[in-house]
Amino acid sequence: MTDAFTFRIDGVDVLARPGQTIMEAADAAGIYIPRLCDHEGLRHQGGCRVCTVRAGGRSVAACTQPAEPGLDVENDTPARNRIRRDLVEMLFHEGNHLCPICEKSGNCELQAMAYRLEMTQPTRFPWLEPCRALDASHPDIALDTNRCISCGRCIRASQDIDGKGVFGYVGRGIHRRVAVNGPDLAHTGAAVTDAAMAVCPVGCIIRKGEGFSTPIGERAFDHGLIGHEIEEKRK
C-alpha cells in the first residue's frame, strides 16, 4: 500500500490504489455511487451512465474512470442526482416497466434506483411503449425483453464467467438490443445455473417456476435503499 493515494468525493478523503476506479475506491470507503450496468465480479462497461460523477471539470462514468491523486469528485449532489434520475426515468420510458405485474418487483435494481433518486415527478418524456419479443422457449428460463435496459451484465457474465457467450448486443443506437446466440434461448448453451442468469438487474431474465416466491416485506429492497449496505461500511 506504499503507493496508495487519496482523492476527495464530496469533500471526504478517500484512499485509493493505482488502477482503482473511482467507484471501486468509493465502495471500499463506504460511499455509494449509483450504478446499474456495473456489477461486482464483472468487468466494467460504463454503459448506463447512472454512475456519472463530476471529476476534474468533466462528467465521467465512475465505474470506468481511474481515481487520481488529488481528484475532486462531485457525487451525491442535487445536480448529479437530477441527471441520474432523468437517465433512470428514460430507461423506464424506453421499455415496458410495469412494476405491479413484474415478479422482479421489490428485487429490481432499476425500481430501487428510482426510489433512491426519488422518481415521483409527473413525467416529461414520452412513453415509447415498444413491442418486444418474449422468449419462453427454454424449459427453465424466460426472457421478457420488454424489461431489458441493455445493461449488458448478462453478456459479460456469459462471456467471462460462464465462457459461453449466450448473449450479445445487436443493432446500433436506440435500436441496440441484447440478443441470444441462436434462433431462441432453447437453442443456445444457456443453463439456469449460469452466472448470466443471476445478474439481470431487472425482470428480463426470469427463472421459470418461481414467480412471486418472496413475500412483500422480505424482498431485497423492501427495507433500506439500494446501496445502503455500502454506505453502512462507513459507520
Binding site: S105, A114, Y115, E118, G224, L225
Partner: peptide
C-alpha cells in the same frame, strides 16, 4: 415537499 424516499413503492 415531496415524499420520504424510503417509503416509495411502485407495487
Amino acid at each position: 415537499h415531496g415524499f420520504d424516499r424510503a417509503r416509495l413503492r411502485f407495487d
